[in-house]
Design a protein around this nucleic acid. Structure first.
Length: 425
RNA sequence: GUGGGCGUAGCGUAGCGGUUAACGCGCCAGGUUGUGGCCCUGGAGAUCGAGGGUUCAAAUCCCUCCGUCCACCCCA
């Protein structure tokens, strides 16, 4: 059976049973940001297409083949954001945040879009949580942000991730490294895989993370970037490492770690699950000291990090992390005979006004059916109103767990439920 | 963009050329006298992804398209 309408390819409905995961991740992330002094920012989910072309990088796959671009009714080329950093930087410039005490620490949470073929761990609309610290090049800030990222996963209870770290230098030293890398490949490129032959000209840095077996020997013998860092970059990297060590953040140096986005300078890092998988990065980030200037601001150093919520949740499930349940109704209000209907409605209303989660039986079903629903919604209590209760201004309060029930005065119902709720915890 | 797997009720599956398409879960309703969870009974719910073809006959064979999943590229 195919319904007439379904969610567009690569998009999903997040159904109620999935929400406990989302809620848990969201709560954990926002609490952490608060602890680290990061403030929330929300930016539009679409921007001028040029912002991303410029910010993410004209040569990246994201811009070349994955961007959701469209012309609006005014003829402007717009794009759904493929990630959040460019937006935040645009906002930083637009609102003159360089006049705030630096660095400016911001975080965001929301959808991002990439026109990709969906597969495990990849959707066309997905959810990004990210942090950006703008206006400071102190490696202590790199360390702080990496620690924040790392702690997010730790606090969520995903214990088996690894933090991969590398430095990709800056405008001073990268050309030198690329030259060395290409020299290393010069006589071997003919026998490399077709993808690598394309990378050699297009994006040589990416040669390093080719997964084809036959390319591994060349990669293994390739010179590591850290050997080619200029003095400033080398020192920055060294200081970052000592900060991380002082903070007890376990990291793995990965000289092959390069990122697909053009804007990264110096620090780059990724957080990965143990399994060799296709989409094995849950979060990633790095320093982007040239981006603000690229987007029309003054030269401003910055570092950021982003993580995919869907991938976090996949890892929570993979490692069987139990997440807190979302609160169930305290009471289900049922009634017998239509005469009791309005009294039941009034009771439900009063309870809710007192902040007690009350679900009212609707649909005029039999009491038996109503009780079945009380059971189905997993209510702590059922409150039942019938003829006798109407006559005596009482209600039957039944504890669903063990079926124990008693007739109580209507005015006491609220108090008794509240008491029961406290004991249930 | 390329390659592969799969498409039967809301979900998970059986049926793989021949009478009214089956089972489990879920849903709805009953099992007498105002009440749930277990059990029993009944019911609703599927133009077997769509279109075309082969055949006396197709959910079952063939083709095309669509959808979906997985992989590659790349990425969260």
């Amino acid at each position: 059976m195919s319904p007439r309408y379904r969610a567009p390819r690569g998009t999903v409905d997040i159904l109620p049973e999935e929400q406990p995961y989302w809620e848990h991740v969201y709560q954990t992330a926002t609490r952490l940001c608060q602890v680290y002094g990061y403030s929330r920012i929300d930016t539009p989910i679409f921007e001028e297409a040029g912002l991303f072309a410029r910010g993410v990088g004209q040569t990246t796959d994201i811009v070349q083949k994955e961007m959701y671009v469209f012309q609006d009714r005014g003829g402007e080329m717009m794009a759904l954001r493929p990630e959040g950093t460019a937006n935040v930087c645009r906002a930083y410039i637009q609102h003159g945040m360089r006049n705030l005490p630096q660095p400016v620490r911001l975080y965001y949470w929301g959808p991002a879009f990439r026109y990709d073929r969906p597969q495990a761990g990849r959707q066309r609309q997905f959810t990004h949580f990210g942090c950006e610290a703008i206006g400071e090049n102190d490696p202590a800030l790199d360390a702080e942000l990496i620690e924040l990222a790392w702690r997010l996963y730790q606090e969520l209870g995903i214990a088996d991730l690894t933090l991969q770290l590398n430095s990709v230098g800056d405008a001073n030293c990268r050309p030198r490294y690329l030259a060395a890398l290409k020299a290393h490949y010069q006589d071997k490129i003919g026998s490399a895989c077709p993808d690598c032959r394309a990378r050699f000209d297009k994006n040589p840095l990416r040669l390093l993370d080719c997964k084809v077996d036959s390319c591994q020997p060349v990669i293994a013998s390739a010179p590591p970037f850290v050997d080619y860092l200029c003095e400033e970059c080398a020192q920055h990297f060294q200081e970052l490492r000592s900060y991380l060590e002082a903070m007890g953040i376990p990291y793995t140096l990965n000289p092959r770690l390069v990122r697909g986005l053009d804007y990264y300078t110096r620090t780059v890092f990724e957080i990965q699950p143990p399994e060799e998988g296709a989409q094995n990065t849950v979060g990633a980030g790095g320093r982007y000291d040239g981006l603000i200037e690229e987007l029309g601001g003054r030269p401003t150093p910055a570092i950021g990090f982003a993580t995919g919520i869907e991938r976090i949740i996949a890892n929570l499930k993979r490692t069987s992390v139990a997440v807190p349940a979302i609160a169930k109704p305290a009471v289900f209000v049922a009634y017998q005979m239509s005469a009791a209907r309005s009294a039941a409605s009034r009771l439900a209303s009063e309870l809710r006004r007192a902040g007690i989660a009350a679900v009212m039986a609707v649909g005029g079903r039999s009491l038996k059916a109503q009780m079945r629903q009380a059971n189905a919604v997993d209510a702590l209590y059922a409150a039942i109103l019938g003829e006798e209760e109407l006559a005596t201004d009482t209600v039957i309060l039944r504890r669903m767990e063990d079926g124990q029930q008693e007739r109580v005065a209507t005015k006491d119902v609220r108090r008794l439920i509240a008491k029961g709720l406290r004991q249930a915890r």
